[in-house]
Design a protein around this nucleic acid. Structure first.
Lengths: 127, 127
DNA sequence: GCTTGACCTGGAGTGCACTCCAGGGTCTAT
DNA sequence: ATAGACCCTGGAGTGCACTCCAGGTCAAGC
């Protein structure tokens, strides 16, 4: 049994999360961390398992197009504790709607592209 | 029976396609039109049905994340005639792969977000 | 004890896709 | 013949999300 992840360096977190070192520092400046990032005696960042999970979730939000300021707002609510659960829920639900809609649009565009591809396939096959 | 669309002004095309006037001019500068845009005696742009269809397809490519320079490359091939059909086909097929992959990723992120939403729903319902 | 490598900070720079602006022309209706 | 709507050009500006840089600190290995 391995111990819980603790005291990761910024490069270790970068490797683990796929988010670059510079971007991790940028996220911190943009207030995307719920609690201040821990530091060691020398002032270097130390991340724990919760940070890893959090960064992975932020990556999901980013991958679906949520902007940095909206994530910062969500994080702000999280800092305020359980009382903001309904607001956080509402924020995520609204975002989900956006994502579902964008997924639909992308699928429609994909269909149009596939149709075009089929045309080219016919032409290239010399029909 | 209505005639085929012809001689649309830039604002008419903007309304029809959902692409702004400025963006249409920008696309032209970026060489995203296969043939030079027609002008009237006063030098104003006049678009026909083929332009409408083309702009709509460009919008599909943009909506799925194809960059301006790649669309310009595709357009360049189109200008060279039927001989480039295989290359155009390959370009679109490669793009389709990207889109399908991105769709998969977005769906995975959506699932993660939905999972989080379900958590909040439980918490908010006071369980 | 000195090099090497990872890390720090504040701030500047980048790439992308628009979007806006100044200054000017033209067409139509009053 | 004058106002107002629409269009033109070249070029500057914007917003976003990073990404890079200079100059410096610190710990570990040789």
């Amino acid at each position: 049994m391995s111990d819980t992840i603790t005291d990761l360096s910024i490069s270790a977190l970068a490797d683990l999360s796929g988010v670059s070192i510079d971007t991790l520092r940028y996220y911190e400046r943009a207030n995307l961390f719920v609690r201040p990032v821990r530091r060691d005696e020398a002032g270097r960042r130390r991340y724990g398992e919760r940070d890893v999970i959090w960064v992975q979730f932020v990556t999901r939000l980013r991958a679906t197009g949520m902007g940095i300021t909206t994530i910062a707002e969500y994080t702000r609510l999280a800092r305020l504790g359980e009382a903001t659960n309904p607001e956080r829920l509402a924020l995520l639900e609204e975002h989900r709607e956006h994502v579902v809609e964008k997924l639909r649009e992308t699928q429609a565009s994909l269909d149009a592209i596939s149709y075009k591809i089929a045309e080219y396939e016919r032409k290239v096959a010399d029909l």
